[in-house]
């Protein structure tokens, strides 16, 4: 996933007793595990939070095409090229379902694009890192899609119906993405020393940004507490990060790779790994637009949009002409 630090507009989470009757009824439905559907009443904060989260998620899928697309033309075999094309196509498809899910909340895709292009809406920090070698494509599948799955599996149980249902399909495809990434790396570590070195280099660069995908610790965040009360979010950032590290360490070991964290060690007592703290200053810088590829990614999206204006206008004009001709033909026939 790809939503980080989503705000809720809440100053604090209110109790049922403090709520107006309709809001209380809404919260009780959520507490009972019922799904909320598009046309039903919902608090404005719930709606806005979902729009922020789903659009951020959708934007991430779309911007995420760029670092991977960077290697499609250089994929080392026809099969790897086909797999990468299929993956990137899936991601554009995910973007499409997610924009549609967000549209059920009363915002148009064009408005969401506008927010992305103006910098008002964010996308995941991870896509502001460059893909420098072919191993980065494998590492993205393994680590980035792995982290995304960790976040998205619980979202299948999100209280908002259209988002939860979009996530069911997305999760299936993401697990294929993760497997293909791991498989590509497996092939490389069994190959030449240069290939193995390429994989280790990719892990060195992608490890910490992958941990940052979960966002900073949110145990004290009112936004997280509110999102959890609304069942938009199910687990804390730290819980998911821990799960990700515990899942990934043995996979790295199997590949014969070293995770670039001197503090990483198994903690018998907690039944999980201890690990170092990501560089949150770097994270906040990337979020603020200072990552290695922020400017390029956003410029590429803006350019695609503005260069394509004539294309979209042309199709709209044609559709209007066809409608006018039909109307004229109908009048003539009467």
């Amino acid at each position: 996933m790809y939503a980080q630090m989503v705000k809720t507009d809440a100053a604090r989470v209110r109790s049922l007793e403090e709520m107006e009757p309709h809001e209380r009824a809404f919260q009780e439905r959520i507490d009972a595990g019922q799904k909320i559907e598009p046309k039903e009443w919902m608090p404005e904060g719930y709606r806005k939070t979902l729009v922020r989260q789903i659009s951020q998620h959708a934007h991430s899928e779309i911007v995420g095409q760029l670092p991977e697309g960077n290697w499609i033309t250089r994929a080392p075999t026809l099969e790897r090229k086909a797999i990468l094309l299929a993956k990137v196509q899936d991601e554009a498809g995910h973007g499409l379902y997610l924009y549609c899910a967000a549209e059920t909340l009363g915002i148009s895709r064009d408005q969401m694009y506008e927010q992305l292009h103006s910098g008002k809406a964010k996308y995941s920090s991870i896509f502001n890192y460059p893909t420098l070698t072919w191993a980065d494509i494998g590492a993205i599948g393994w680590l980035v899609d792995g982290a995304a799955i960790m976040n998205q599996v619980p979202l299948q149980r999100c209280s908002y119906g259209p988002y939860a249902r979009a996530m069911v399909r997305i999760c299936k495809e993401e697990s294929f993405h993760q497997r293909q990434g791991y498989d590509a790396l497996m092939r490389m570590v069994k190959g030449t020393p240069a290939q193995k070195a390429m994989v280790q280099d990719a892990l060195n660069r992608w490890w910490w940004p992958s941990l940052m995908m979960f966002g900073p610790s949110d145990d004290a965040s009112v936004h997280s507490a509110q999102s959890m009360a609304w069942k938009i979010k199910q687990n804390s950032n730290d819980e998911l990060r821990q799960k990700f590290v515990d899942q990934t360490v043995p996979q790295a070991k199997y590949l014969g790779l070293t995770i670039p964290d001197p503090d990483l060690k198994w903690n018998e007592e907690k039944g999980g790994h201890d690990f170092g703290e990501p560089d949150w200053e770097e994270f906040f810088n990337v979020i603020a637009g200072n990552g290695p590829c922020n400017a390029e990614r956003l410029d590429a999206r803006k350019k695609a949009w503005s260069d394509g204006a004539w294309f979209r206008d042309g199709l709209t004009a044609h559709a209007e002409k066809v409608a006018d001709r039909r109307a004229a033909a109908k009048i003539a026939a009467e």
Partner: peptide, 29 residues
Amino acid sequence: VSEWCGHSPALEEDIALSNTALDLIGQTQ
């Protein structure tokens, strides 16, 4: 066709282009 990935004028076109490229690469194989 695959050079367009992520740069096309509309999301539906991104999907169609990667689909077309994928078909063509499959045929190449």
